[in-house]
Amino acid sequence: MRKKNKEVQKIWSSPDFHGPVLKVEDLRLSFRVPVGAICAVDGISFELASGRSLAVLGESGSGKTSLGRAILRLLPRNVLTYTGKVFLEGVDIMKLSDGRFRQQVRWVKISMVTQAAMNSLNPVLKVGQQVAEPLLIHEQMEKDEAYERAREVFRTVGVPLDFLNRYAFELSGGMRQRVIIAMALITKPALIILDEPTSALDVLTQANIMNALKRIKQELNANFMLITHDIATSSELADEVACMYAGQLVEHGSAARFYHEPLHPYSQKLMASVPALHTEKRPDFIPGQPPSLLNPPKGCRFADRCHKRFDRCHEEPPLFNCSGELVKCWLYENG
């Protein structure tokens, strides 16, 4: 029992690691379908510094969930290719065997709140037991200790302690979502991936949960990767924003800049489509549709719908560095 815990220590040997929490290099994930292959994550690279939270934005089908799943190696059966490097606190976790990954990474070092997870709680287990489970299974912790930790995280996410003994069906949607977040926090992971954590909830419940996440971020210095298409809500948590289009990263930069001055023409259009309640701005829409991931176009994937397209766009642009902000568009070739 104890031995396994030591192994965890060994993989991440230096406790005061100073590099980025997460570093992804040329990550690719494609699925086999009857008519060919769908490349949902198409050569994505980025870094996330310690103590920062990243929002991953993009239209439905752009590959946001697939990116989260690729990082956590939660793969469906029909995977065709799965390559690249994922460094977690300096260790390339893509190299680990499935067994080691399951024991030492998933839920221990990285946890994920999956899309619509609140409907996936076990109906016959008390929620307290479900929240404590990762500790009992992955860290072989004593029961009392695990339950003490469960009480601690319930307090953190704002669920009354007597709910530990309730069943999922006895909780409202908002409370269930908090329980799921508690479960993701309990092992004190280095990275917490949240996939659309509030999209199914009411405005007020949503605001309550965002408050709880903000508090967790401040108090525990947690690193969140928030996957969502709700751009306004993402601004509640993000220090950085990554914007995806058709399986690729088209922009990655600071939130302070992104929300008021997006660089990529797609990000600009996406931001313009967000209705703002408190200003007079009229939202605009993006004409056309994103390309099929079965046979994506050769050059820039957004070119067909782009209002700033020019000759160069027949070729695929790299991610240009524009004073620290990364953008995959020929307009920024010279910074």
């Binding site: 903000k214 306004a232 509640e236 302070a256 008021h260």
Partner: peptide, 10 residues
């Protein structure tokens, strides 16, 4: 409770 996209929210 309804946010407009703005980094100040964070």
């Amino acid at each position: 409770a309804i946010p407009d996209p703005d980094h100040e929210n964070a």
